[in-house]
Computed example of a mutant assay.
Amino acid sequence: MATNLACVGLDVRTRSGFRDLVQGALPEAKVIAEEGGVRLQVWTDASGARLVITTEGDLVRAVTTSYAGPLGARLADVRAADGGLAIAEIVDADGDILAGLACELEELQLLGDAEDVPPGDACIVGLGRSVEVFAGADEFLASDASLMTFAGDDDVDDGGEPMRFEPESFSPDGAFTMQADAVARVNGTVLDVAARRVERTGQEFTAAQVRTDGFEITLCVPAGEPRLAVGNVVAANTYLVASLPSLLPA
Rank of each mutant, 00 (worst) to 15 (best):
G48W: 03
G48D: 11
A2W: 01
T64I: 14
A68N: 12
R185Q: 11
N232A: 08
R15P: 00
D173T: 13
D158S: 11
S171G: 13
G120N: 03
V193S: 03
F134P: 04
D158R: 14
M163D: 05
D82V: 07
D121R: 11
A86C: 13
E139D: 15
E104M: 06
D138H: 06
T218W: 01
L147K: 10
V156H: 11
R19C: 00
E166P: 03
P222K: 06
D92P: 10
G224F: 05
V78A: 12
F165W: 11
L71V: 10
D45K: 13
L59P: 00
D158N: 11
Q23I: 01
A29I: 07
G128N: 06
I53N: 11
R61Q: 15
E106C: 13
A137K: 10
A6D: 06
R227Y: 02
G214D: 04
D213S: 15
D77W: 04
V131E: 02
A223P: 07
T44Y: 10
P27N: 00
G84C: 02
D153V: 03
G72W: 05
L248N: 04
G37N: 01
I217D: 09
V8A: 10
L111F: 05
G83Q: 08
G83F: 08
E199S: 09
F170V: 11
G120A: 11
V221S: 09
Q109W: 05
G100Y: 00
V125P: 04
L85Q: 06
T206M: 03
R200N: 02
P249R: 15
G152D: 15
E204F: 00
I97Q: 14
P162Y: 08
A33I: 01
C103I: 01
E168Y: 02
A81P: 02
A122P: 02
E115A: 14
D58W: 01
P249I: 01
L248P: 00
T149D: 11
L147S: 00
D116R: 09
A137G: 13
M163G: 02
E35N: 13
A80D: 12
A86F: 00
L26P: 07
I32L: 12
F134T: 06
T189E: 15
D155E: 14
V91F: 02
V183S: 15
A29P: 08
W43V: 01
R39G: 05
C220F: 02
T54F: 01
A88E: 05
T149W: 14
L127D: 03
R74T: 13
I90T: 06
T3I: 10
G120W: 00
N187Q: 13
G17E: 09
L101N: 03
T201A: 10
C7I: 08
E115G: 11
R197W: 00
R185M: 12
V63Q: 05
R227D: 12
A2D: 11
Y239A: 15
G72P: 04
D58T: 12
F205A: 13
V42N: 11
I124R: 08
D154C: 04
D116K: 06
V125W: 00
M178F: 07
